[in-house]
């Protein structure tokens, strides 16, 4: 009986290993394909075989050397700067809003929460044109500042997950601190924030990644000012009809350069990300 149970377990585990391995391969293979072909030396956009025949660093070198009208290093720097600034503002916004909604009690708090939820449900593209002209009225069109504002202005609306996280921190802590004479300001900085590492990391991560992936709003704001493009629209430009034939390999190389830092960051922070998303997600 015990033996057969053990045997059954081994069999079922083996099946699971096989399934996981197959699925793992399916999931990773497009990325492997991307990396392999970003080093491909021969051919143009497409080749009729899976594994490249020869490899070189030319695609990567070209990204940094041929910077005529497609200035990849410049775009990379832009994106990095914008992502850092937007990340700071967004993270602060999200934490402030979710802390206020979760820990502070004030009049019309629930109304604010409901309005916040409602606003998040409009399709974002609707408002692009209006945002563009508002920025223009502020004399900011085609600038990186405009991008930072766009990426961080709405961040406060994404309070649900971190509010869910803050909700799980016992209120007794606040009360004890209040008895000791701490102001709410001090409670926020000295008690709640240090306890909220997972959600802070989660927020930082998501808001840092945002600017690397947006290829729509940025295009509208920057128009013809290619110097201020971010990598996302830059790479998008490389696969437009005008460039695709000659630039597809560079597109793949550029994509790898975008994906690598984000992936590394993501894997390093994975633990917190999981904690943040589960704790906040289950509650919120």
């Amino acid at each position: 009986m015990i033996k057969s149970y053990k045997a059954r377990r081994i069999i079922s585990n083996t099946i699971i290993y096989i399934v996981l391995a197959v699925l793992g391969i399916i999931w990773v293979s497009p990325l492997v394909y991307l990396v392999l072909h970003s080093f491909r030396a021969e051919g143009l956009a497409t080749v009729p075989y899976l594994i490249p025949h020869s490899y070189s660093f030319d695609n990567y070198i070209n990204l940094f050397v041929n910077t005529g009208t497609l200035n990849f290093p410049r775009w990379y720097l832009n994106t990095f700067v914008v992502a850092c600034c937007a990340c700071v503002i967004s993270t602060l916004s999200v934490l402030m809003v979710s802390y206020a909604f979760s820990r502070l009690r004030f009049k019309s708090r629930k109304k604010f929460i409901n309005v916040g939820m409602i606003l998040g449900m409009f399709p974002g593209f609707m408002t692009m044109i209006a945002i563009y002209y508002l920025l223009k009225a502020m004399n900011l069109s085609q600038t990186l500042v405009a991008l930072v504002i766009c990426y961080s202005a709405g961040a406060g609306l994404g309070f649900q997950i971190s509010k869910g996280f803050f909700d799980t921190i016992p209120r007794a802590l606040d009360e004890a601190a209040t008895v000791d004479g701490a102001t709410r300001n001090q409670i926020f900085w000295k008690i709640i924030l240090p306890m909220s590492k997972p959600i802070v990391v989660y927020t930082v991560l998501t808001s840092f990644i945002g600017p690397w992936t947006d290829f729509i709003l940025c295009k509208l704001i920057m128009g013809d000012n290619r110097d201020n493009y971010t990598v996302a629209i830059g790479l998008q430009l490389m696969v437009s009809n005008e460039f695709k034939v000659n630039y597809f390999k560079q597109f793949m190389a550029g994509s790898v350069l975008v994906a690598v830092p984000i992936t590394v960051l993501f894997l390093m922070m994975q633990k917190y990300y999981v904690e943040g998303v589960t704790a906040g997600g289950v509650k919120g």
Partner: peptide, 22 residues
């Protein structure tokens, strides 16, 4: 898509195509 024509020529899989002037 027409960008495959030039790619096809370079990899030797394409014999002819109807392509844009660009």
């Amino acid at each position: 898509e027409v960008s495959n024509i030039a790619s096809g020529f370079s990899s030797g899989t394409c014999g002819a195509g109807i392509d844009g002037t660009w």
